[in-house]
Each structure stands twice: as structure tokens, then as C-alpha cells.
Design a binder for these strands. Sequence first.
DNA 1: TCTGGGGTCCTAGGACCC
DNA 2: TCTGGGGTCCTAGGACCC
Length: 425
Amino acid sequence: MSPPTVFALVDVNNFYVSCERVFDSRLLGKPVVVLSNNDGCVVARSNEVKAIGIKMGAPWHLLKRVAAEHGIVALSSNYTLYGDMSRRVMNILGNMAPRLEVYSIDECFLDFTGIRDRTEQGQAIRARIQRWVGLPVCVGFGATKTLAKLANHCAKKSLAGESGVCDLTRLTPYEIQPLLARIDVGEVWGVGPKLCEQLQTMQIRTVADLQRADVGALRSRFGVVMERTIRELRGDSCLPLEAVAPPKQQIMSSRSFGKEVVAFEELRESVLSYASRAGEKLRQQASLTSSVMVFVRTNPFKDVPQYAKQIVVPLPHPTDDTLLIGRAVAAGLRAIYRQGFRYKKSGVMLMQLTPKAERQATLFEDVGAIDRRDRLNQAMDRINAKFGKRTVALAGAGIDRRWVMRAENRTPAYTTRWDEFPLVR
DNA sequence: TCTGGGGTCCTAGGACCC
DNA sequence: TCTGGGGTCCTAGGACCC
């Protein structure tokens, strides 16, 4: 008989803030937030900021007063840095477990089935990542992914010891019940604000309540996802570890503008540059797209005439050519653009993706031309990878780019650019 | 002046077909 | 008084995650 499954979830504490602190020790012990693109919302908070009561996702411009009061340091997000730090963490984890699933930029599931001494192993993971990369992590173990997530929550909040590691598989039912009865049902992976509210009205308030709830009744009201969550809480593993990431089914690139855009030309620049970025991602995962969606919208938070429109443009045949994607996107934009609105955001989505390896030849295509275009796109990707984004780009994507987002307090790309390497002074 | 970006999965409902 | 029924496909929208 095979041993019962055990998952570990490793999660970096306050990931973006912790990355910034690795390179600037003055941030240690201070209240620090990292802001989303355009310096819009709070997307990462240090413990000091959490203690003040600032919520995840809070609009920064509404927090200026309280921030000044508490001396909060606000940094623009530096995804180049975070992406590189993430890669380092995942590389270390790859050597500490037989199989792993990189779940997000700062989280990773590990297969710990059949591995003993889990608490010691968890401590070893923490020590190694702290020493080699400088980042603090917590480790949770559970019989299912949902329980491993919950264990990680316990580790972070020190609900079952102070060690930064929590192994729920070691607890007896008598020890687990009071623990789960102390955790809010909204902490469960898959229970968001809406579900939480509805569960409350059914007197399901804690994880323990949900675990012993009537599966049939909750399934018929909320669907199969809820059933799976309850079964996972009971130790019945429904979500397997996905060691190889399946290819994306849609690829999106979109941004809010740093300042509102009125002119068609500028809107066109923006969607062409997103088309270009989406094309890069598409080629990276070796897929082709058969239809593209373009959208534009005004600022819904402002009391001005609103306009939001999207359009799907089918492509004559599946392609990964930035120039063809750009042409379709431009045509789509012409169809939906209306004069006289102040646009705040635009975007491009590539849909109906298929593997490039399964591409069907069409009757009248010019194989030589397609091959030449393939080589052009590959050359562009290589040049941009080597010399930096937009070294070569579509001419229509603009030079001035007055619409690009703001990032007024971005730290250097410490680990990925020699000219921004941190020097000891 | 100022409110992110990028995904997934599921369900309901309409169109259409036989 | 009475106006089929079931399957499939597609789309829109909602909920969730980080």
C-alpha cells in the first residue's frame, strides 16, 4: 500500500517587501508597502503596516495621510527583481523535494509523501532560503493542498508553535479540532469574501464548521468547487500536484495609463505595445493564437462619461507573428474607438491557443514567408532578451509613450543589471 | 492627480439541431 | 384545454487565486 499523500506549501513572508529589504537594510523594522503598477494599490505590506490595519489592495492615494502619520515607506513594484528572487527560491526548493509545483511568484507546493522528519526538513528549508537568498519563508504540511495551505497559515500566525513550520499531519483529531475552530472560514483556500458572507449566514463561521458541514447541501448551493474544498479539508486529496505547468489557455497584456488618453494614435500605440508583449509570451510557450481581443475603457472611478468596449478579431489562421497580431489588434481598435472619451486603460488578450507543434498547414500559405517571419520574431525576442525590453519594437508602438504607467519610487534591478548592481560604499 | 494585472474554473442561459 | 424534449455548443458573467 502506498503511503498517504503529504504536501508541503512553502510561502515567502511579505514577499515583495522582503525582497526590497534584502538590498536595503534601512527598510528593516520600518513600515513598508509595495504598490501595484501605476503606484495604484497596496500589494505587499510589512508586518508593521499590517499592524497599523492597512488592508491588502487598498488604494494608495487614500492612504497618504495615515502613511505620513506612521512614516510608511512606499515603493513602486520592481517585478524584474521579484521575478529573479523567485527563481532563486524555486531553484533551491527543486533540490529539496522530489517533485514540486511552482504555484505563484512566492509559493510552491512540494511532494512530501513518504518523507519523514518533516519538521526538521521544514526548518532546513527555512534556514537554507534565509542563508542563500536572504528571504524568510514559512512551511506548512498537510494531507491535501488545502490543508497544506492552512498549515502554512498556522505557521505564519504561530497558531501551533512559533517555529515557522506547521505539520498538520502530526496532530491527532483531538488536537486539530480546537485549532480549526479558532480559524475563520474565510482563511480557507477557495473561500473568498462572497462565499464567506453566505457561509456566515448558514452559521458556518470557522474552518471546523465547514469541515463538518453537509457536503451534499453545500454542493447543490455552491457547486463542485465547494464540494472539493470540503473533501480536501477532510483529508481527501482532490487536487493533484501539477509538476509541469500546463500551457496557458489565454494570454493577456494590459495596463492602466499613467495619464488619461484621448487621441486614437496614442491608444493605438498602447495596444500595439501590448500586442507585442503578448506575442512574446505566446512564443515563449510555443503556442499559436486564432483570435485576439482588444479592449479600451474610461476610468470607472471618475464621474465622467463612461465608455467600455471590447471586440474579438478572428485571425485567418493560427499564428504567433507579432506583426499579424498587431494588425488584427489595430483593426479591432479602429472598430471600437469612439472620439471624445478620456481613456484610462486598454489591453489585448490572445485566445484560442493551440500548440505550435500541432499546427495545420493551410492550402494557400507561403511556407517561405512564414519561415522568414518566424526568424524575424525570434531575432526580435533574442535582441530584447539580451539588450532589454523594447530595444526593437513595432514602430506603431510609439517612441514618446506619454501614456505609460507611473512608477515614482522604483528600486534598482539589483540582481539583473550590472549597472544597477548594489555596490558596498 | 490618485483605485493593479494576469490568470483559472464553473454555471446559466440562449441558439440550434434532431 | 392543449404548444416536445434532450443534447451540444457558445458566450457572458461571476467567483476565486496571487
